[in-house]
Protein backbone atom coordinates (compact mmCIF):
# COMPACT_ATOMS: atom_id res chain seq x y z
CA UNK A 1 0.00 0.00 0.00
CA UNK A 2 1.29 3.49 -0.80
CA UNK A 3 1.79 5.45 2.39
CA UNK A 4 1.10 9.06 3.07
CA UNK A 5 3.74 11.12 4.80
CA UNK A 6 4.06 10.04 8.44
CA UNK A 7 5.42 12.29 11.14
CA UNK A 8 6.37 11.25 14.66
CA UNK A 9 5.56 13.32 17.70
CA UNK A 10 6.42 12.69 21.35
CA UNK A 11 3.39 12.25 23.56
CA UNK A 12 2.35 15.22 25.67
CA UNK A 13 -0.11 13.05 27.61
CA UNK A 14 -3.81 12.64 26.96
CA UNK A 15 -3.24 9.77 24.51
CA UNK A 16 -5.58 7.56 26.52
CA UNK A 17 -9.02 9.06 26.72
CA UNK A 18 -12.68 8.18 26.90
CA UNK A 19 -14.44 7.79 23.57
CA UNK A 20 -16.18 11.17 23.32
CA UNK A 21 -19.61 9.57 22.89
CA UNK A 22 -22.42 11.77 21.75
CA UNK A 23 -25.11 13.77 23.57
CA UNK A 24 -28.33 11.91 24.51
CA UNK A 25 -27.12 8.63 23.01
CA UNK A 26 -25.97 5.49 24.78
CA UNK A 27 -22.21 5.02 24.69
CA UNK A 28 -20.40 1.74 25.40
CA UNK A 29 -17.74 3.33 27.59
CA UNK A 30 -14.91 2.44 25.25
CA UNK A 31 -11.58 4.14 25.77
CA UNK A 32 -9.20 5.08 23.03
CA UNK A 33 -5.45 5.03 22.75
CA UNK A 34 -4.72 7.64 20.11
CA UNK A 35 -1.40 6.34 18.84
CA UNK A 36 -2.07 7.42 15.28
CA UNK A 37 -4.03 10.32 13.87
CA UNK A 38 -4.98 10.08 10.21
CA UNK A 39 -5.55 7.06 8.03
CA UNK A 40 -4.16 5.65 4.81
CA UNK A 41 -7.35 3.81 3.89
CA UNK A 42 -9.24 6.88 2.65
CA UNK A 43 -12.83 5.69 3.14
CA UNK A 44 -15.18 8.23 1.59
CA UNK A 45 -17.38 8.62 4.68
CA UNK A 46 -14.54 8.94 7.20
CA UNK A 47 -15.26 11.82 9.58
CA UNK A 48 -11.53 12.48 9.81
CA UNK A 49 -11.96 14.16 6.40
CA UNK A 50 -14.12 16.79 8.02
CA UNK A 51 -11.78 17.35 10.96
CA UNK A 52 -8.18 16.89 9.89
CA UNK A 53 -6.54 19.70 7.95
CA UNK A 54 -4.24 17.55 5.83
CA UNK A 55 -3.75 13.92 5.00
CA UNK A 56 -0.56 13.49 7.00
CA UNK A 57 -0.33 10.60 9.43
CA UNK A 58 0.72 11.66 12.93
CA UNK A 59 2.22 8.89 15.05
CA UNK A 60 2.64 9.43 18.78
CA UNK A 61 5.71 8.03 20.47
CA UNK A 62 6.45 7.52 24.14
CA UNK A 63 5.69 3.98 25.24
CA UNK A 64 6.50 4.56 28.92
CA UNK A 65 4.25 7.59 29.19
CA UNK A 66 1.40 5.81 27.41
CA UNK A 67 1.75 2.76 29.69
CA UNK A 68 1.72 5.03 32.70
CA UNK A 69 -1.55 6.58 31.43
CA UNK A 70 -2.99 3.10 30.89
CA UNK A 71 -1.96 1.94 34.38
CA UNK A 72 -3.61 4.96 35.87
CA UNK A 73 -6.85 4.41 33.92
CA UNK A 74 -7.06 0.65 34.49
CA UNK A 75 -6.22 0.86 38.20
CA UNK A 76 -8.99 3.44 38.66
CA UNK A 77 -11.63 1.67 36.56
CA UNK A 78 -14.10 1.56 39.48
CA UNK A 79 -15.28 -2.01 39.15
CA UNK A 80 -15.71 -2.01 35.38
CA UNK A 81 -13.58 -3.99 32.97
CA UNK A 82 -11.94 -1.37 30.80
CA UNK A 83 -11.86 -1.81 27.05
CA UNK A 84 -9.41 0.10 24.92
CA UNK A 85 -8.88 0.49 21.21
CA UNK A 86 -6.46 2.18 18.86
CA UNK A 87 -8.90 2.55 15.98
CA UNK A 88 -10.65 5.83 16.80
CA UNK A 89 -8.56 8.34 14.86
CA UNK A 90 -7.00 5.81 12.56
CA UNK A 91 -7.12 2.15 11.52
CA UNK A 92 -5.42 -0.15 14.05
CA UNK A 93 -3.67 -2.40 11.54
CA UNK A 94 -3.27 -0.51 8.25
CA UNK A 95 0.26 0.74 8.96
CA UNK A 96 1.15 -1.56 11.84
CA UNK A 97 3.27 -4.02 9.89
CA UNK A 98 5.52 -1.15 8.84
CA UNK A 99 5.69 0.82 12.09
CA UNK A 100 5.08 -1.91 14.73
CA UNK A 101 2.96 0.43 16.80
CA UNK A 102 0.74 -2.04 18.66
CA UNK A 103 3.28 -4.62 19.80
CA UNK A 104 4.12 -2.96 23.12
CA UNK A 105 0.41 -2.61 23.85
CA UNK A 106 -0.23 -6.30 23.22
CA UNK A 107 2.58 -7.19 25.60
CA UNK A 108 1.33 -4.74 28.20
CA UNK A 109 -2.29 -5.98 28.13
CA UNK A 110 -1.06 -9.61 28.16
CA UNK A 111 0.84 -8.96 31.38
CA UNK A 112 -1.71 -6.64 33.00
CA UNK A 113 -4.60 -9.12 32.61
CA UNK A 114 -7.16 -6.55 33.82
CA UNK A 115 -8.41 -5.00 30.62
CA UNK A 116 -8.99 -5.67 26.95
CA UNK A 117 -7.27 -4.17 23.96
CA UNK A 118 -9.22 -4.16 20.71
CA UNK A 119 -7.43 -3.71 17.41
CA UNK A 120 -10.13 -2.53 15.04
CA UNK A 121 -9.41 -2.55 11.34
CA UNK A 122 -10.46 -2.81 7.72
CA UNK A 123 -7.00 -4.08 6.82
CA UNK A 124 -6.77 -7.87 7.00
CA UNK A 125 -3.16 -8.23 8.02
CA UNK A 126 -2.11 -9.05 11.54
CA UNK A 127 0.36 -11.86 10.77
CA UNK A 128 3.25 -9.81 12.14
CA UNK A 129 1.48 -9.78 15.52
CA UNK A 130 0.69 -13.52 15.63
CA UNK A 131 3.40 -14.43 18.08
CA UNK A 132 2.44 -11.56 20.41
CA UNK A 133 -1.28 -12.30 20.57
CA UNK A 134 -2.79 -13.18 23.93
CA UNK A 135 -6.33 -13.59 25.29
CA UNK A 136 -6.48 -9.91 26.26
CA UNK A 137 -6.22 -8.74 22.68
CA UNK A 138 -9.31 -8.77 20.50
CA UNK A 139 -8.81 -8.60 16.75
CA UNK A 140 -11.76 -6.81 15.21
CA UNK A 141 -12.88 -6.05 11.71
CA UNK A 142 -15.38 -3.57 10.41
CA UNK A 143 -17.43 -5.41 7.83
CA UNK A 144 -19.71 -4.21 5.06
CA UNK A 145 -21.15 -5.78 1.90
CA UNK A 146 -18.50 -6.06 -0.82
CA UNK A 147 -20.56 -3.82 -3.12
CA UNK A 148 -20.27 -1.03 -0.56
CA UNK A 149 -16.56 -1.70 0.01
CA UNK A 150 -15.94 -1.42 -3.73
CA UNK A 151 -17.69 1.95 -3.86
CA UNK A 152 -16.68 3.65 -0.62
CA UNK A 153 -13.76 1.82 1.02
CA UNK A 154 -11.54 1.49 -2.01
CA UNK A 155 -8.17 1.07 -0.31
CA UNK A 156 -9.28 -1.47 2.28
CA UNK A 157 -9.14 -5.26 2.27
CA UNK A 158 -12.03 -7.04 0.58
CA UNK A 159 -14.68 -8.58 2.79
CA UNK A 160 -13.59 -12.18 2.26
CA UNK A 161 -10.05 -11.32 3.41
CA UNK A 162 -11.34 -9.59 6.53
CA UNK A 163 -13.51 -12.57 7.42
CA UNK A 164 -10.66 -14.98 6.62
CA UNK A 165 -8.34 -12.95 8.85
CA UNK A 166 -10.93 -12.98 11.63
CA UNK A 167 -11.20 -16.76 11.28
CA UNK A 168 -7.39 -17.01 11.45
CA UNK A 169 -7.39 -14.94 14.65
CA UNK A 170 -10.00 -17.28 16.16
CA UNK A 171 -7.85 -20.26 15.22
CA UNK A 172 -4.92 -18.64 17.00
CA UNK A 173 -7.05 -18.58 20.16
CA UNK A 174 -8.19 -14.96 20.03
CA UNK A 175 -11.65 -13.60 20.47
CA UNK A 176 -12.69 -11.45 17.56
CA UNK A 177 -15.01 -8.49 17.32
CA UNK A 178 -17.10 -7.44 14.35
CA UNK A 179 -18.36 -4.00 13.60
CA UNK A 180 -21.17 -3.56 11.11
CA UNK A 181 -20.51 0.12 11.03
CA UNK A 182 -21.35 2.16 9.08
CA UNK A 183 -24.47 0.35 7.95
CA UNK A 184 -25.67 2.22 4.90
CA UNK A 185 -29.02 2.36 3.16
CA UNK A 186 -28.74 1.98 -0.61
CA UNK A 187 -30.77 0.18 -3.26
CA UNK A 188 -30.64 -3.51 -2.39
CA UNK A 189 -28.79 -3.10 0.91
CA UNK A 190 -31.12 -5.48 2.80
CA UNK A 191 -30.21 -8.39 0.55
CA UNK A 192 -26.49 -7.53 0.72
CA UNK A 193 -26.58 -7.49 4.52
CA UNK A 194 -28.41 -10.82 4.60
CA UNK A 195 -25.60 -12.33 2.55
CA UNK A 196 -22.98 -10.65 4.71
CA UNK A 197 -24.48 -12.04 7.89
CA UNK A 198 -24.79 -15.43 6.20
CA UNK A 199 -21.04 -15.27 5.48
CA UNK A 200 -20.30 -14.37 9.08
CA UNK A 201 -22.28 -17.39 10.28
CA UNK A 202 -20.61 -19.70 7.81
CA UNK A 203 -16.99 -18.58 8.18
CA UNK A 204 -16.64 -17.66 11.85
CA UNK A 205 -17.05 -19.58 15.09
CA UNK A 206 -19.78 -17.64 16.93
CA UNK A 207 -18.52 -18.78 20.32
CA UNK A 208 -15.30 -16.87 19.67
CA UNK A 209 -16.97 -13.63 18.60
CA UNK A 210 -16.76 -11.44 21.68
CA UNK A 211 -19.04 -8.70 20.39
CA UNK A 212 -20.72 -7.34 17.29
CA UNK A 213 -21.59 -3.70 16.98
CA UNK A 214 -24.27 -2.25 14.76
CA UNK A 215 -23.97 1.40 13.79
CA UNK A 216 -25.96 3.13 11.09
CA UNK A 217 -24.22 5.84 9.10
CA UNK A 218 -23.95 9.15 10.95
CA UNK A 219 -21.71 12.12 10.47
CA UNK A 220 -21.20 15.70 11.59
CA UNK A 221 -22.83 18.55 9.63
CA UNK A 222 -19.51 19.56 8.04
CA UNK A 223 -19.42 16.16 6.36
CA UNK A 224 -22.85 16.50 4.73
CA UNK A 225 -21.68 19.24 2.37
CA UNK A 226 -18.62 17.20 1.44
CA UNK A 227 -20.73 14.14 0.62
CA UNK A 228 -23.04 16.24 -1.55
CA UNK A 229 -20.09 17.85 -3.28
CA UNK A 230 -18.50 14.46 -3.92
CA UNK A 231 -21.83 12.99 -5.08
CA UNK A 232 -21.63 9.91 -2.81
CA UNK A 233 -24.77 8.16 -4.02
CA UNK A 234 -24.38 5.16 -1.71
CA UNK A 235 -24.08 7.41 1.30
CA UNK A 236 -26.94 9.75 0.44
CA UNK A 237 -29.74 7.37 -0.54
CA UNK A 238 -31.39 7.13 2.88
CA UNK A 239 -33.44 9.80 4.62
CA UNK A 240 -31.36 11.89 7.01
CA UNK A 241 -32.41 14.08 9.89
CA UNK A 242 -30.36 15.96 12.51
CA UNK A 243 -30.15 13.98 15.75
CA UNK A 244 -30.24 15.49 19.22
CA UNK A 245 -26.44 15.57 19.11
CA UNK A 246 -26.55 17.66 15.91
CA UNK A 247 -25.19 14.83 13.75
CA UNK A 248 -26.87 13.64 10.60
CA UNK A 249 -28.47 10.21 11.04
CA UNK A 250 -31.17 8.22 9.31
CA UNK A 251 -34.68 8.97 10.51
CA UNK A 252 -35.58 6.95 13.61
CA UNK A 253 -38.25 4.80 11.91
CA UNK A 254 -35.63 3.54 9.46
CA UNK A 255 -32.97 3.00 12.12
CA UNK A 256 -35.34 0.85 14.15
CA UNK A 257 -36.44 -1.15 11.10
CA UNK A 258 -32.86 -1.88 10.04
CA UNK A 259 -31.44 -2.59 13.50
CA UNK A 260 -34.34 -4.94 14.19
CA UNK A 261 -33.71 -6.84 10.96
CA UNK A 262 -29.95 -7.14 11.49
CA UNK A 263 -30.25 -7.97 15.18
CA UNK A 264 -32.61 -10.86 14.37
CA UNK A 265 -30.40 -12.13 11.56
CA UNK A 266 -27.39 -12.16 13.86
CA UNK A 267 -29.28 -13.81 16.70
CA UNK A 268 -30.41 -16.47 14.21
CA UNK A 269 -26.74 -17.43 13.81
CA UNK A 270 -26.37 -17.93 17.54
CA UNK A 271 -28.64 -16.67 20.32
CA UNK A 272 -25.59 -16.16 22.51
CA UNK A 273 -23.99 -13.52 20.28
CA UNK A 274 -23.44 -10.23 22.07
CA UNK A 275 -24.81 -7.57 19.73
CA UNK A 276 -24.85 -3.91 20.68
CA UNK A 277 -25.83 -0.65 19.02
CA UNK A 278 -23.21 2.03 18.66
CA UNK A 279 -24.25 5.53 19.76
CA UNK A 280 -27.99 5.01 19.78
CA UNK A 281 -30.92 6.28 21.77
CA UNK A 282 -32.49 4.25 24.54
CA UNK A 283 -35.83 4.06 22.69
CA UNK A 284 -34.12 2.73 19.55
CA UNK A 285 -32.43 0.06 21.69
CA UNK A 286 -35.78 -0.92 23.17
CA UNK A 287 -37.71 -0.97 19.89
CA UNK A 288 -35.11 -2.86 17.90
CA UNK A 289 -33.59 -5.30 20.41
CA UNK A 290 -36.09 -5.40 23.26
CA UNK A 291 -33.30 -4.41 25.65
CA UNK A 292 -34.18 -1.67 28.13
CA UNK A 293 -31.23 0.60 28.87
CA UNK A 294 -31.52 3.78 30.91
CA UNK A 295 -28.11 5.19 30.13
CA UNK A 296 -24.53 4.40 29.12
CA UNK A 297 -23.85 2.83 32.51
CA UNK A 298 -26.42 0.16 31.63
CA UNK A 299 -24.57 -0.79 28.45
CA UNK A 300 -21.18 -0.76 30.18
CA UNK A 301 -22.72 -3.19 32.69
CA UNK A 302 -23.74 -5.51 29.84
CA UNK A 303 -20.16 -5.46 28.55
CA UNK A 304 -18.80 -6.29 32.02
CA UNK A 305 -21.19 -9.21 32.25
CA UNK A 306 -20.28 -10.44 28.77
CA UNK A 307 -16.56 -10.33 29.46
CA UNK A 308 -16.92 -12.03 32.84
CA UNK A 309 -18.99 -14.78 31.21
CA UNK A 310 -16.46 -15.60 28.56
CA UNK A 311 -13.24 -14.97 30.46
CA UNK A 312 -14.41 -16.48 33.72
CA UNK A 313 -11.92 -15.55 36.44
CA UNK A 314 -9.17 -14.61 34.03
CA UNK A 315 -10.09 -10.95 34.12
Amino acid sequence: MSLQKAEFVETKGGVVRKCPGTKNHICCGYQTIDLVEGCVLDCSYCILKAYLRDDRIKITRGEDAIISELNNTIDNAGGHIPRFGTGELSDSLAIDRRYKLNRFLLEYFGKKKKAILELKSKWADFGHLSEHLNPYTVISFSVSPQRFIDAEEKRTSPLYKRLKAARAAQELGCFVGLHLDPIVIYDGFEKDYRYLIGDIGRILDPSKIIWISLGLLRFPPAMYGLLLERKRKYLLTGEFIRGEDGKYRYIKTERIRIFRMLYRLLKDIDKGLFVYLCMERADVWRESTGIELKDSEGLIGLFDKRIKNIYGGAL
Binding site: G243, K252, R281
Partner: peptide, 8 residues
Protein backbone atom coordinates in the same frame (compact mmCIF):
# COMPACT_ATOMS: atom_id res chain seq x y z
CA UNK B 1 -42.80 17.94 19.16
CA UNK B 2 -39.19 17.41 18.07
CA UNK B 3 -39.05 18.59 14.43
CA UNK B 4 -37.32 15.34 13.39
CA UNK B 5 -39.39 13.05 15.67
CA UNK B 6 -36.19 11.93 17.41
CA UNK B 7 -37.13 12.67 21.02
CA UNK B 8 -39.59 10.16 22.41
Amino acid sequence: VDPFFEKE
